[in-house]
Design a protein around this nucleic acid. Structure first.
Lengths: 340, 340
DNA sequence: ACAGATTGCTCAATCGATTGCAGCATCCCT
DNA sequence: AGGGATGCTGCAATCGATTGAGCAATCTGT
């Protein structure tokens, strides 16, 4: 146990410690960094002294000097839906994995939830001088801004869709293909009157909707209805309930934009006395751990969040090291459970 | 749109900008801070120049100089359960609220998930010089460490239980009382053979168990069984399923340590063909948004996470300002829904 | 015993901003 | 016109560490 309590005078900086040890600050710095340039004896003496006084060098100063912060910014842009909470389960799940991987590699995480009001929000983050790199959790409606910054700022990786010719590096699932899978699954279950439940402003979600349309068209079905839903967790529930009440008689298959939305929909249908999947089939999207625990279990499209998170970090490290890294588009997978 | 793209030479520091503007660095600094000390014309000229070159002062340097970082550390200690994920929904829910409140006040969040191996983990965080304050998300099994640091480090607020005589400032719910409420609710539903599902190592959870025991004792019932469960999300499900399989015949009321656990339990019971609440009653704990969306809806103990998060931040700001702030113990509330 | 290599440390510049103090104009008032 | 107040800007110290260059002492080999 460090006896930092027993010693009265706290040491504030390397200079004080140097005076105490009777050496120069340079030596102290090297000693604490365990550099072999300083004699083993002095080195250990200084380290012991530091420990005894509970001294740890100021990271801010070190980072300013070294020009490396070991901090990665994890940024959530909330462009189209300002009321969306950080507590969105999908985001949280991926954040958990990011945190694991990054801390394993000795990086800290700076979390920012940004409402892109001023158009230089990303520039502000990126050259605050506080970050070695940036992970952007979704493109929201900020595609152009991201592209603009990506022109000159390399260490940035974005969760989202890849558009041909874009500069910024993305990791994500093939959302359109995912939408198609969901559609096929519903159609295979004999459903013909489909609806998409979610908000199609962000590119990711729009792609899912388009995929669903693909599937419907391929089967010769009419185009699915699009039901817009707020993504803010506090209003989402009632929003969805209202939709369900209004349309449940006209629809027999629902493709939800996320597991959370699907879960709310199942709940709302139950309230209307409609059985899932007997009366209406539902698919989710994401395959959160949660999806397996609901009653009935969600049939959903898997995004393999853990793999994605690891890939983002990997790509970011490449870029920090100065190498290039291509976008990654993962294959979505249909996970058949009980709702479709 | 900033034309940072069109200008070839990026400006790296205040000195270059000063040379460009034909003034001294001091003036530039004051101008960018919008201080009235510098002439309105020069001020605007410099600001325009900065904007044109997409220049923003280095935050690291500023913070070193000003000795104020505007960064709050949000730390999750994983002492007793190293495999517990950051993605725990309760933690995520509260983090969301913390992020909202802190960003509203112009603070950034540094997220650390710590496995307390070395016993100076908290000291390392606290005097890294990177943080204006620390929010600790739960006491885990690190009570002594937290106390030790709280002796000399003021701006720290902890989510968890308050023990008489402790130094560190906590915000949390009266867990024991919550446990009692859950017990009473089960007993009122006619349940006599109770069990506690969760891990009673962390003080918070132990209190909930003790409260349950209080209620049982008060009703003249035998002491509830304690079923230990891993809190890691990946094994929790099977862990719980195994418990349920083993004991469902001997038990008719389950008080779960969290909503997530309760949800898994309901799921596992359904797999065994046992109906909730007809055959077994279950209560959760936390009242996550999720609890209202499951089928059946969870009866649970409310922690009012939003209020708690706000209180933590409030207390922290007081402490950063140099004032004192007392611990807050909130009243738990029983939310009756469908599972008990 | 002496050149040359090695070891162990100090000195001072540096990272990029902020800010107290001093100094120079300008302006106002009598 | 002279004295004082006021407004604006520059100078240089400062935050707390890192690190290359330089120097003295010791060691190695002949």
């Amino acid at each position: 146990m460090p006896d930092s309590v027993s010693t009265p005078a706290r040491i504030r900086n390397i200079a004080e410690l140097a005076r105490l040890a009777g050496v120069s600050t340079g030596t102290v710095s090297r000693a604490l960094a365990n550099k072999s340039l300083v004699n083993k004896d002095t080195r250990e003496r200084i380290q012991a002294l530091a420990r005894a006084h509970g001294f740890r060098p100021n990271q801010m100063a070190r980072r300013l000097r070294v020009q490396e912060t070991r901090v990665i910014g994890v940024v959530v842009p909330l462009g189209h839906e300002q009321r969306q909470h950080l507590s969105d389960p999908f985001f949280m799940a991926i954040l958990g994995h990011l945190a694991d991987t990054l801390t394993e590699n000795g990086y800290d995480i700076m979390l920012s939830r940004v409402i892109p009001d001023a158009d230089d929000w990303l520039e502000r983050i990126v050259d605050s001088g506080m970050l070695d790199g940036v992970l952007l959790m979704g493109q929201s409606n900020q595609f152009e801004t991201i592209e603009r910054v990506a022109q000159w700022y390399r260490p940035m990786v974005v969760w989202g869709s890849h558009r041909p010719g874009q500069t910024h590096c993305t990791v994500g699932v093939d959302n359109r293909q995912g939408g198609r899978l969901a559609g096929k699954c519903l159609i295979k279950a004999g459903r013909t009157r489909l609806a998409f439940l979610g908000e199609a402003v962000a590119p990711e979600l729009k792609d899912r909707f388009d995929g669903l349309c693909d599937a419907a068209a391929a089967a010769g079905l009419p185009a699915p209805i699009k039901l817009d839903t707020h993504l803010a967790s506090d209003v989402m529930a009632e929003d969805i309930a209202a939709h369900i009440k209004r349309i449940h008689a006209k629809v027999d298959g629902i493709s939800a934009a996320s597991d959370l939305i699907a879960m709310h929909a199942v709940r709302a249908l139950a309230d209307c006395g409609i059985r899932v999947p007997q009366d209406i089939s539902i698919t989710g999207f994401d395959d959160l751990p949660l999806a397996e625990q609901t009653i009935p279990r969600l049939t959903t499209i898997s995004q393999s969040i853990a793999v994605g998170a690891r890939a983002m970090v990997q790509a970011l490290f490449e870029r920090i090291a100065g190498n290039d890294s291509a976008s990654l588009e993962m294959e979505p997978k249909l996970i058949r459970r009980d709702t479709a």
